[in-house]
Simulated assay, not measured.
Amino acid sequence: MPQLLQCGRFSFRLEQRPLVMGILNVTPDSFSDGGRYGTLEFAVSNAEEMASSGVDLIDIGGESTRPGAPGVPVEEELRRVMPAVYALQGLGRALSVDTCKPQVMREAIIAGADMINDINGFRTPGAIEAVKDSDCGLCIMHMQGTPQDMQARPVYEDVVREVIDFLRERADALQAAGVERERLCVDPGLGFGKTVEHNFALLRATAHIEQALGLPVLVGLSRKSMIGAVTGRPVEERLPGSIAGALAAVAHGAKIVRVHDVAETVDALEVWRAATFGSTINSQ
């Protein structure tokens, strides 16, 4: 299995520990923090807090992808995202941009983004061309439908097999275009066109997905409805469930967890590593 993920200025050795990707929404309508970091000042402050808490990658998103969310014109997404990408260049953390628009991908790469995280799996015409000649990491996500309709009635014969087949086809398409395999990771897309049962089946199959594709798996379940379905908690009370989900994902083989609550997740993962493998005690 690949143990190196190349993301622009950063090379991550994935056998050492799981990576934590912090979510930085610069949108007015995110499902979990709608508008909280919509201004550049608050976005930079939040990113700095993530960095001090031990985040590895910061995922900047300018378009909400919650179920039913309307699309955002490319000019508006650029207006939201690009100031954050420029402002965070000196933070010393890998910067990911969460977008499915080729123009945003190109501008973000020029500005120094280290990863492009595409919920549409680089299917949008022009997406592969926008990223193939860069050195940034690429996260390929599976989604059935679009954010506008994905949760209407998701149906699969075999959700794990179908997600693996999709991710394999997209990884093959990127490699055929000349993208190095070390730049790729995959995301099964929990919550993107899946029922709660589908989501947990994919979570349990994380190691199988990695073995089938030979690519590191990113899991994002922080604060999602699958947590609420189990705990009965509203989105603002899903921190314990989200941490448990992140630990379960890592235990099942995830190499990256995408989270809202960076400090709490980093601490939980440190304790999990010490309990599982043994580690040096932090003397602070």
Rank of each mutant, 00 (worst) to 15 (best):
A263K: 11
A207M: 04
D133M: 09
D149K: 07
L239H: 13
V186E: 07
A248K: 14
E236R: 13
M150K: 12
Q175Y: 01
A205M: 03
I256T: 09
D56C: 06
L78W: 12
P28C: 08
R153K: 14
Q148E: 15
H260N: 15
C7W: 01
V266W: 05
A274N: 10
G189E: 08
G214F: 11
S30R: 06
A94I: 03
M226E: 02
C136Q: 02
R123L: 09
L40H: 10
G137L: 03
F192V: 04
R123H: 03
V257H: 04
L269Y: 05
M150T: 01
L138K: 00
H252Y: 04
M21T: 05
I243T: 10
I58K: 09
G126E: 06
E129M: 01
I60Q: 00
V20K: 01
A173P: 02
G8K: 04
I23A: 02
T39D: 15
V44N: 03
L184V: 05
V81R: 07
T27P: 00
H252K: 11
M141R: 00
L24T: 05
P216F: 07
G214N: 11
G71R: 14
A251W: 14
K101D: 07
L221F: 03
I109N: 01
I23Y: 08
A275E: 06
F192T: 01
P154W: 01
F277W: 14
A152S: 13
G189I: 11
T195Q: 05
L19H: 08
L190R: 09
V179N: 04
G121E: 01
G61D: 00
R238L: 11
Q103F: 05
R106P: 00
H252C: 12
E264M: 00
I109Q: 13
I209M: 14
A254Q: 13
V81I: 13
G189T: 00
R80S: 04
M150C: 12
E49A: 13
G68N: 02
E49I: 10
A43G: 08
S52L: 13
T276N: 02
M105T: 09
R170M: 01
G22E: 10
A177L: 11
A246F: 04
H198Y: 08
A207I: 04
T65K: 07
A171Y: 06
T280Q: 15
L40I: 11
L203D: 09
S283P: 14
E264K: 04
R183H: 09
R258F: 09
R153H: 10
G22D: 12
I227G: 12
L202M: 06
M82P: 02
L174H: 03
V85E: 10
I60C: 10
L218Y: 02
A249L: 13
D261T: 08
A205S: 13
N25G: 07
R161K: 13
T231Y: 07
H142G: 00
V266H: 03
I119G: 04
G145Y: 00
Q3T: 14
G191N: 07
D56Y: 07
E169R: 05
R93T: 04
T280S: 14
G126S: 09
A111N: 13
G253R: 05
H252A: 15
L88D: 08
W272H: 10
L78S: 11
S32E: 10
L40G: 05
G61S: 14
E129K: 08
E210F: 06
L213D: 08
G61W: 04
E77A: 02
L190A: 12
P28Q: 12
Y37A: 03
L91K: 13
A127I: 03
G68T: 07
